[in-house]
Measured scan of single mutants.
Amino acid sequence: TEYKLVVVGAGGVGKSALTIQLIQNHFVDEYDPTIEDSYRKQVVIDGETCLLDILDTAGQEEYSAMRDQYMRTGEGFLCVFAINNTKSFEDIHQYREQIKRVKDSDDVPMVLVGNKCDLAARTVESRQAQDLARSYGIPYIETSAKTRQGVEDAFYTLVREIRQH
């Protein structure tokens, strides 16, 4: 089974770092803004072998026109913010609204991801993020692309959301 996953969120929150940590098991430290990259990885989730087709997208506003296209083809979405960047957390709402509009559905598989949880300088409390996820009816997972904490959990949870859909 193949799953088309799309990673969305503001610029600099760590979308590529999360994806590369999942696929290649290493942490990319330097920031190089993405336009669009796709990665494929075969994994076993709950005993089922599946192929993850992951689209890593641009957070930069100037590429926002490309969003409709990949939102149409994606089956599930990782909505990523950084726990030390309140603005990126506030941006999640717009991504969710755009996904709902493009998919013409209120019920699209999504996982809210709070990345950079290895950093002490948190400005978005776990509780705020949990409340937001609960209001959307989606899971919330904290990750660190640096330490790998929660990385597999985030992507695998999204696959489970798609399966249950």
Rank of each mutant, 00 (worst) to 15 (best):
V108D: 01
K116F: 15
D68A: 03
L78G: 00
Y3R: 10
R122D: 11
F27Q: 04
M66T: 10
F27V: 07
Q164R: 14
V13G: 10
V113G: 01
F89V: 14
A82I: 04
R101Q: 02
V7L: 09
F155G: 00
V80K: 03
R101I: 07
V151Q: 07
Q94V: 11
K100W: 04
E48F: 13
P33A: 12
D153N: 08
Y156M: 15
T57A: 01
V6G: 03
C50R: 07
E75W: 05
L158I: 15
D91Q: 15
G12A: 13
D46P: 03
G74R: 05
K15T: 03
L18N: 01
K103D: 03
M71A: 01
G150Q: 15
K146V: 14
E61C: 13
P109H: 08
G150W: 08
M110F: 14
R163T: 09
A145F: 01
S88I: 01
L22S: 14
V159G: 01
Q60G: 14
Y156L: 13
R96G: 04
G47K: 09
R127F: 09
H93W: 14
K103W: 09
V108G: 02
E97N: 14
Q94F: 14
A17I: 06
R148G: 11
G14H: 01
E2F: 00
V28L: 05
A65D: 01
A58N: 13
F27D: 02
R122H: 13
G9H: 01
S144M: 10
E30P: 07
T143Y: 04
Y31K: 04
Y156D: 14
G114I: 02
L52I: 13
Q130H: 07
T1N: 13
E97R: 13
C79H: 02
A121Y: 13
V108I: 14
Q60K: 15
V111Y: 01
A65I: 02
Y136D: 06
Y70I: 14
M71L: 14
A145T: 05
Y31M: 08
D68G: 04
A82K: 05
T49C: 10
Y95A: 12
G74M: 08
V124A: 10
Y136C: 11
K100V: 08
L18K: 04
G59S: 06
T57I: 11
D153E: 10
I20T: 06
R134K: 09
A154E: 03
S105L: 08
D53I: 00
G12C: 11
G9W: 00
T157Y: 12
V7D: 04
S135T: 11
R122W: 04
L5F: 07
L51P: 08
F81H: 02
R72L: 04
E142R: 04
G150K: 09
V124N: 05
A58Q: 13
L55A: 07
Q42N: 11
R40N: 04
T19D: 00
D91S: 15
Y3A: 06
I83D: 06
T123L: 06
F155R: 01
T57C: 01
I99K: 04
R40A: 07
D46R: 11
R163E: 12
E62G: 12
G150P: 08
L51F: 06
G76W: 05
A17Q: 10
E142C: 05
N25P: 09
F81D: 01
E62H: 15
G12R: 13
A121Q: 05
V102K: 02
D46I: 09
T86A: 14
V124I: 11
F27K: 03
T147I: 12
D37F: 02
Q164K: 11
K87I: 07
M66G: 09
L22M: 14
E97S: 13
L119S: 15
L55I: 08
Q149S: 11
D46W: 11
M71Y: 07
D118K: 02
S135H: 10
V44I: 09
G47S: 09
A129M: 14
H93F: 08
S105R: 09
T147P: 05
R40E: 00
T157L: 12
F77D: 01
Q94K: 15
V108R: 01
Y136A: 07
D107E: 10
R148T: 12
I45C: 11
E161D: 06
K15N: 01
T86N: 08
V44T: 12
D37P: 01
Y136V: 10
D153H: 09
R40M: 08
A121D: 12
L55P: 01
V151E: 01
T19N: 12
M110R: 00
G137R: 05
G114H: 00
H26I: 09
D37T: 02
G12Y: 05
V13H: 09
N84M: 06
Y95T: 11
T143V: 15
Q69F: 05
G14C: 02
R163W: 09
A120F: 08
A17L: 02
H165V: 09
D107T: 14
R40L: 07
D32G: 06
V151K: 05
E61S: 12
G76S: 05
K87N: 03
D104Y: 00
T86W: 07
G47V: 05
D91G: 14
E90H: 11
Q98I: 14
E36K: 02
I23F: 13
R101V: 05
R40K: 06
L55E: 15
V13R: 01
A65K: 00
F77K: 05
T57E: 01
A120K: 14
N85T: 05
V44L: 12
R67T: 14
T19G: 10
A154T: 02
A10R: 13
Y63P: 12
S88Y: 08
C117F: 08
I92Y: 06
R127P: 12
K146Q: 13
Q149F: 04
A65Q: 02
H165L: 14
D106V: 07
H165G: 14
D153Y: 07
Q21Y: 10
F81K: 03
K116M: 14
E75P: 02
V13Q: 07
E61W: 15
D107I: 15
G11M: 10
G12L: 12
R101H: 00
E30R: 04
